[in-house]
Design a protein around this nucleic acid. Structure first.
Lengths: 210, 210
DNA sequence: TATGTATACTGCATAGTGCAGTAATTCAAG
DNA sequence: CTTGAATTACTGCACTATGCAGTATACATA
């Protein structure tokens, strides 16, 4: 059966391009470093390197330590070549899934408490990631980057995360204030306040800045 | 075969809670209104209402117009009840997939041109969505909301989109400036400039504000 | 009359997820 | 020194979701 190279294949291949990894290491590393750009399940991250071997883009060899074995994967010249081809394809459009926002869209089915709870949960998820990135940056200052020569890339990437997280947190506060003025979630329609917001947005202006 | 209710099921159910829709209408409406919170394929949006019927959460009846038929789906009392249960479950953490950022993380395999192209493509995708939302808000000002009593929800949701899009666009400009100072994508490591950025991020400060 | 676009779907192969299960290793508490 | 919990190191399976090709009608325009 012919295997197809997906973006996830390239993601794993790019990791293998840095150094050889065991299957387990790949899952751990990918969860840590790729999570915010390309979140994939542990299960997939175990399968991808096998696919790469079938494609001839990597080699696998079993390492025995005592009674337990683990697979070590290494990139091939073919694999490095395939990586270069990746850049010639168009990047996929971004894809953003936020269930809390879906609940906001249909908030009129529930109470303002339900809606606020959804926002609380979103805030909790975001601030967890936010703190993790800040801690990671602190560790980089102490020379803690696993590939020191690649620090410039990780840090530029991290600026994106921080901007995003700050924006979302700022919006959550804003949204809570707005919702706080609502007597209910239903049938408010185009209130004077909503009209002000709509007008700002129609002129591409941020309601959070005022 | 017992069907399971996923978040996508609830998303479609929430649409059906507004009014009856045909399968085709559901796919179109979901692409327009849910795309930014819960992007799902047309294929799935055709399948979900069938699942809802099997679960007893909706009814289907064929409408004939000439030689062509279409399915009209309507929510049941059971379905409305199920919707209420949705709010009692924890919201899923957000999931953000941006291939352009993945390419940034591994940009040292290619040239600065490759990286800039990825950013250009991201910018094109974002600005397309950005403009669409601004236009949508302009149409709301003229009373163009399909469910006028729900305008307050759509507009608060739109504030999120606009904030996100502006943030991403601002970051792209910032990133282009940074990359413009790079002689190459490789082996720069912890440059003085990167150290400044890392320091700011470690103190949870935005490098874009300065 | 031809042709393109919108309507209105279905089938199928494949990508990806979640969860359960298996089994060895390590390390700290009792 | 032994019991139990956590970590390492995966695999199998059922199911969710996507992309694409295919089918067929309706309608407007050239």
């Amino acid at each position: 059966m012919a295997q197809r190279t997906t973006i996830s294949s390239y993601a794993v291949l790019a990791l293998l391009n840095l150094r050889p990894w065991t299957g387990y290491e790949l899952t751990q590393q990918a969860q840590r470093s790729l999570r915010y750009a390309w979140p994939k399940s542990e299960r997939l991250l175990y399968s991808e390197p096998k696919k790469l071997v079938e494609l001839g883009y990597a080699t696998a060899h079993k390492e025995e330590s005592g009674n337990r074995s683990r697979n070590v994967y290494e990139i091939t010249t073919e694999g490095r070549h395939a990586l270069t081809e990746w850049t010639s394809s168009r990047t996929q459009p971004p894809r953003i899934e936020i269930e809390a926002l879906l609940r906001l869209l249909f908030a009129d089915h529930g109470s303002t408490e339900d809606l606020n709870r959804a926002l609380d949960e979103l805030e909790a998820d975001i601030s967890e990631h936010h703190e993790a990135i800040v801690d990671l940056m602190a560790s980089y200052l102490d020379g803690g980057h696993p590939f020191p020569e690649r620090t410039h890339l990780s840090v530029l990437f991290a600026t994106f995360q921080i901007e995003m997280f700050k924006t979302i947190e700022r919006w959550i506060e804003f949204a809570r204030d707005e919702i706080g003025e609502w007597p209910t979630t239903q049938d408010l329609g185009m209130t004077p306040r909503t009209e002000v917001l709509t007008c700002l947005l129609a002129h591409d202006q941020s309601p959070l800045d005022s």
